[in-house]
Amino acid sequence: MFYPNSPQTSPQLTQIPYGQQYAMMQRQIQQPYHPFATTEPQARLYPYHYQGPIQQEQGGFITQQSTAASPQYVQMRVTPVDQSIMSGYPNQTANGSSSSSFNYNIHPQQQQQQQQQQQQLRHHAMPVGSVPLQDDRYRKQLIVNYLAPDVTSTDLHELFSRFGELDGARIIYDKQTNMSKGYGFVYFCHAEDAKEAVERMSGYEFHGKWLKVGYSTNPLNIVPSNSSPYVHAGSRGAAG
């Protein structure tokens, strides 16, 4: 039997160049792979992502010199942007860049009308829970959420009447099932009393439920100042 490094198959040491006398086997001759043993700084910083320098080929596509990437890492192929796409944008300079302001050559009167329309939209648009300043009635009506099913309009009136005089209180019921929808409205005579009720009743436990109280901004629920107070009856038909 002959071994790869046996004296019968191995040459004389004098015939082997210096430095390879003890590297006779194939696994010894093959050098191990060192990912950080390279002179390129990109490979030292990113050993798993770097795959060699990027070269520009004919046709405008950018390719990489090395083989496919590892399945664990996804390499994105980048193509140059066609400058003709950006030619339609206004205020574009000769080098292809555009300024931040756009001039669509709008007539001054049209621009003024658009600004007025935007101001009107901001004036009428009102986020949930906010209180408008032009109508004091919005500051007097509250919406009470997360009410228990057994709470009546009379219970709601008695709960909030300790903060001040009320114009009314009612629970909203479903017309088909005649069941409470879980929320109601309270109408105060003074805005200061309503503000105190919002601050003190939010998070209050009532009939096993934690109440959420806020201003009601729905104009359909506003009680006119010259109208008669609501009837605080315990029956659902009268309260709904």
Rank of each mutant, 00 (worst) to 15 (best):
E165C: 13
Y104R: 04
L156P: 14
V78M: 10
S202A: 12
Q141E: 01
Y230T: 09
Q115K: 06
F206Y: 09
N105I: 15
D167P: 04
Y22A: 11
K181T: 00
R162E: 11
Y48L: 09
H107P: 09
P90R: 10
Y187F: 00
Q31I: 09
N103F: 15
L133K: 04
L159G: 04
Q20F: 14
E165F: 15
V74L: 10
D174R: 01
F61A: 03
D193T: 03
P53R: 04
Q117V: 12
N178R: 12
Q8E: 09
S101H: 13
R27M: 15
R236F: 01
V231G: 09
G168W: 01
D193M: 06
K209I: 00
Q64T: 12
S99T: 11
Y138V: 02
D135C: 01
A239K: 04
S216H: 00
P127A: 13
G214Q: 09
Y173V: 07
Q118C: 10
W210Y: 01
S216D: 00
T39M: 15
L220H: 02
Y73G: 04
Y3E: 02
G184D: 02
E205M: 13
G203K: 01
F36Q: 03
N178I: 07
R137G: 05
V81C: 10
H123L: 12
G88V: 11
A233L: 12
Q176K: 04
A125L: 11
T63R: 10
G52E: 06
L156N: 13
I143P: 03
K212L: 00
I85F: 07
G240T: 07
D167Q: 10
T152P: 10
P108Q: 12
Q114P: 08
V151E: 03
R122P: 07
I29P: 11
P71A: 05
Y104L: 09
Q119G: 10
N103D: 01
M201Y: 04
Q31A: 11
M179T: 07
E40Q: 12
S235M: 01
A148F: 01
L211W: 00
R170N: 01
Q92G: 11
Q42W: 14
H232N: 13
L166W: 03
M179A: 09
I222D: 02
V78L: 10
H49V: 13
Q64A: 10
T217L: 04
N145L: 01
E199M: 07
P47M: 14
D82T: 13
Q141C: 00
Y46L: 06
G88W: 15
P229Q: 12
G19K: 07
Q120F: 15
N221S: 09
V186G: 00
Q116A: 07
A43H: 09
M76L: 13
R27F: 15
G182Q: 11
H157M: 11
G234Q: 10
H190V: 02
R139E: 04
V78P: 05
A169S: 08
